[in-house]
Structure formats: C-alpha cells, structure tokens
Simulated scan of single mutants.
Amino acid sequence: MDVPCALPPRPGLLSSLLRWSAACAAIPPLLTPALLLGPVSQGASDALMRAWCLWARRVFGVDVEVVDHNAGRYDAAAYVFLQLNQTSLSETFVTPPALPRPALIFMNLGFAVLPFAGWVPLSQGSTVVVRQWHAQARRAVDRATEALRRGASYYMSIEGLRSPDGALGPYKKGAAVLAIRSGATIVPMVFHGARAVLPVGEWRVRPGRVRVELLPALETRGLRYEDRDALLQRLRELAEAHGLGLPPG
C-alpha cells in the first residue's frame, strides 16, 4: 500500500539509463502520432497512449493489477475517474490502460507541460487548471462541466500535489463540485505500490507491482452544491478504509 514504509533499493545508474532509453525509443512511433491524432480522434490517440504505457511498464518491470469493483459495467453517460491518493509520477504510465474508457484529464499546468505525457491529453481536449489563479480555475471547471454534460469522461486527482511519504494530502473541493454540477458518476480509484516504484523526486524506476482498484461507482444525481463537503468526507473515508492516509512514522 502507499503508506510510509521502507522503499526497495534503486536500480543501478546504467540499468536505469538503458530502460529510459528503451521507453523513449517508442515515443516516435507511438506518442508522436498520438499527439497529431488528438484533435481529430480521441479514441485513436488514446489507444496509442495506452500502447506506449504498456511498453513502458514492460521496460521498467512494473506489473499492474487492476481490480474493478464495478465488474466492467460502465453504462452511464459520463464518468469522473477520481484518484483518491496521488503519490508518484509512475501513475503516468500506470493509469491510462487501467481506465475502462478513454478519458480527458483535469490537470494542473505542471503536468500539462510534461513532454508527451501532458501534451497528448492536451491535444485531445483535456482541461488545464491553474489553482492559484481563481478566475481561471472557475473557467476550467465550467469547461469540464460542459464536456461532461456532452458525454465526455474525465480522470483527475482529488489531491493538489503528489504525496512524498504516502500520507493523504488535503482533498480539493473542485472534484466534488465538478461531479455534482455535471451529474457525472464518480468512480473512486486507489493506488497501492505506485510510490515504491517511483518515489516523488526520483527518476530511477524500480521494478515492482502496482494495484489499481476501481471502487464501486457513486451517483451524484440529486446532489446539490451544498452537498460537496459531505461528498468529500465520504471519499476520504473510502480512501482510509482501503489503508490510505496513515500518518508518517
């Protein structure tokens, strides 16, 4: 689980460089066309991104288990796939193949400027938010709300930053507001083992196993803006019930 614990040893420098070289070698045939196809075909672009993620997992020796508590039943018009614990950039190549359908990303500016990892979703129409710029953040929520109402799905984290030690950070109300305003169905997601694979601040990816759980879907129809705090609390309790949020030490 992504709680404070001893991390496995880092792989050697040469081994890490070779693995990154192999992962990057697949960018021209996979992510370059994914970037170009983003504005015209989200599905094709997403398929290429998933293919690169699977290649990166293989290169880095990261095995991913997906546990879907919804048994593959995703019949609602729009979903918000909501990550309840964010601990590692390894989630960049772990998450896309784990999602049951293509999804735009509600992402901060720092992620949007990452080469290919941020550029490809941006080309597909994903939404960038600058949380410190309140007027822009409100407009970003408005744009994402309209996209969800048109039937798009989104993936986003409920925390503002990646946790360096595995403990849960403060939950942002924007995720609850976005889901309530659009009437989208929330699929809470919890990650176990992502931090052990690539801790915050490091670049050497450790071989390992990550488990992604898609928790039972939560309907938001009938909820009002005034219900946002109660929804946040419910999501926090879900995360804690799955062993997340333990204090350091």
Rank of each mutant, 00 (worst) to 15 (best):
26 A>S: 15
27 I>C: 08
27 I>W: 05
28 P>L: 14
28 P>C: 06
29 P>M: 09
30 L>R: 05
30 L>I: 01
30 L>K: 00
33 P>N: 08
33 P>E: 04
35 L>W: 04
35 L>K: 10
37 L>N: 07
37 L>V: 05
38 G>N: 05
38 G>D: 03
39 P>H: 03
40 V>N: 06
42 Q>N: 14
42 Q>I: 08
42 Q>W: 03
43 G>K: 12
43 G>I: 06
45 S>W: 00
45 S>A: 06
45 S>D: 01
46 D>H: 11
46 D>F: 05
46 D>I: 00
46 D>N: 14
47 A>V: 10
47 A>P: 08
47 A>E: 05
47 A>R: 11
49 M>W: 00
49 M>A: 00
49 M>Q: 00
50 R>M: 00
50 R>K: 12
51 A>G: 04
51 A>L: 12
51 A>W: 00
52 W>N: 01
53 C>K: 03
54 L>P: 10
54 L>V: 05
54 L>A: 09
55 W>M: 04
55 W>E: 00
55 W>V: 07
56 A>Q: 02
56 A>D: 01
57 R>P: 10
57 R>C: 14
58 R>E: 06
59 V>L: 11
59 V>K: 13
59 V>W: 02
59 V>T: 13
60 F>V: 06
60 F>M: 03
60 F>I: 02
61 G>K: 05
61 G>S: 09
62 V>D: 07
62 V>P: 05
63 D>V: 13
64 V>G: 02
64 V>T: 07
65 E>G: 12
66 V>H: 08
66 V>W: 12
66 V>C: 06
66 V>Y: 08
67 V>S: 14
67 V>L: 15
68 D>A: 12
69 H>K: 12
69 H>S: 13
70 N>A: 04
71 A>F: 10
72 G>N: 15
72 G>W: 11
72 G>Q: 13
74 Y>N: 02
74 Y>S: 02
74 Y>E: 04
75 D>R: 10
76 A>N: 15
77 A>R: 15
78 A>W: 13
79 Y>F: 07
79 Y>W: 12
80 V>N: 10
80 V>C: 14
84 L>D: 12
85 N>A: 15
86 Q>E: 11
86 Q>S: 13
87 T>S: 10
87 T>F: 06
88 S>N: 07
88 S>Y: 02
88 S>K: 05
88 S>P: 03
89 L>H: 09
89 L>S: 14
89 L>Q: 15
90 S>F: 11
91 E>M: 05
91 E>G: 05
91 E>C: 09
91 E>W: 02
91 E>P: 01
92 T>H: 14
92 T>D: 08
93 F>I: 08
93 F>G: 01
94 V>K: 01
95 T>V: 14
97 P>A: 01
97 P>D: 03
98 A>E: 04
99 L>S: 09
100 P>A: 11
100 P>S: 09
100 P>T: 06
100 P>W: 09
101 R>C: 09
102 P>C: 11
102 P>A: 10
103 A>L: 11
103 A>S: 10
103 A>E: 09
105 I>S: 04
106 F>V: 08
107 M>L: 14
107 M>T: 06
110 G>K: 13
111 F>P: 07
113 V>K: 13
113 V>Y: 14
113 V>A: 15
116 F>S: 02
116 F>P: 00
118 G>W: 09
118 G>K: 07
118 G>C: 10
121 P>H: 10
122 L>Q: 04
123 S>F: 02
123 S>I: 00
123 S>V: 06
125 G>S: 13
125 G>V: 04
